[in-house]
Amino acid sequence: MRPILTLLSVLFISSPAYAAELPEMDAEAIIAAVNTRDDGQQLTRKFKVELTNRSGKTRTEEMVAFRRYFGDEKRTVIFYTEPTRVRGTGFLTFDYADPKADDDQWLYLPALRKVRRISASDRGDYFLGTDFTYEEIKKEQKVQDTDYVFESVGTGMLDGSEVYIVKGIPANDDTARELGVSYVVWRIDPEIWMTRKTEYYDRNGNLARTITLEGYDTIDGYLTATKLRAENHKTGHSSVFTFDDSDYETDVSDRIFSQARLRRGL
């Protein structure tokens, strides 16, 4: 997969027509390129979340996250570290390669002292007061391609970069209900194969949320998002995730991805 993407990247950069017009690609190929972008075998990182309400009042939370691939299965665990009122809260997810298998997700709330399973039907719910959904936390800017029927909408300019524009309509009514959308529009930068801007339209066709990639860097050889902003156009609430200390080289133990460790914390 990697050589194909490298060849495409060379084509985009070296072609004299690149600045004016991207090579034509079908929507499925664009989404496949996003999903096959190499994001490393394992990752440890810290991140800060800034939550701002309609009146401009902001609160900040901090977390530590670990992610590792077990073959084609991706496991992620997140622990809240600050402030005190949320410290010890944890989220664990097993993202299975088989699209027919429901992914496993669990949430630990210290005040209740119990682990709660997040069902597949709840994956479109917001993650712990943020404007990102459980699905978006799990997928990390990638897309579950079986959830949508994709359509290429052409190309456009965004923040000085030419991007592919892809529209996705939920594959069926159950998926539309779970995700809470009528359609989604992605603006994808082929130089990095990341989505620079994603727009989510509610079941009535109104713009509900926007997620914007505001920063990225190459860390340990891997393209890495360093700042993401989600804006809820209905509530006026926004969430900014700023990622720090991303480490792809330190080994991540498989023992950290368990419900027992979720209860115990860091």
Results as ranks from 00 to 15, higher is better:
156 G>R: 15
157 M>N: 10
158 L>C: 10
158 L>E: 10
158 L>R: 12
158 L>Y: 15
159 D>W: 12
159 D>K: 07
159 D>L: 07
160 G>N: 07
160 G>V: 02
160 G>S: 05
160 G>H: 09
160 G>E: 06
160 G>M: 03
161 S>Q: 05
161 S>F: 04
161 S>L: 04
161 S>T: 06
161 S>A: 11
162 E>K: 15
162 E>N: 10
163 V>C: 13
163 V>N: 14
163 V>M: 13
164 Y>L: 01
164 Y>F: 12
165 I>A: 06
165 I>M: 12
165 I>H: 05
166 V>S: 08
166 V>N: 00
166 V>Y: 12
166 V>R: 03
166 V>M: 06
167 K>E: 07
167 K>L: 02
168 G>D: 00
168 G>P: 05
168 G>C: 00
168 G>I: 05
169 I>S: 00
169 I>Y: 02
169 I>G: 02
169 I>W: 02
170 P>F: 08
170 P>V: 00
171 A>P: 09
171 A>Y: 06
171 A>H: 07
172 N>I: 00
172 N>G: 09
173 D>Q: 14
173 D>A: 09
173 D>W: 12
173 D>T: 11
174 D>F: 13
174 D>C: 04
174 D>V: 04
175 T>Q: 11
175 T>K: 14
175 T>I: 14
175 T>A: 12
176 A>Y: 02
176 A>T: 06
176 A>F: 04
176 A>N: 05
176 A>L: 06
178 E>C: 09
178 E>T: 10
178 E>M: 11
179 L>Q: 05
180 G>K: 08
180 G>A: 12
181 V>F: 08
181 V>P: 01
182 S>C: 08
182 S>L: 04
182 S>A: 08
183 Y>K: 02
184 V>A: 01
184 V>P: 04
184 V>K: 05
184 V>G: 01
185 V>T: 12
185 V>A: 01
186 W>C: 06
186 W>G: 03
186 W>H: 15
186 W>R: 10
187 R>M: 13
187 R>D: 05
189 D>E: 09
189 D>W: 15
189 D>A: 08
189 D>N: 12
190 P>W: 06
191 E>L: 12
191 E>R: 13
191 E>Y: 15
191 E>G: 14
191 E>S: 13
191 E>D: 09
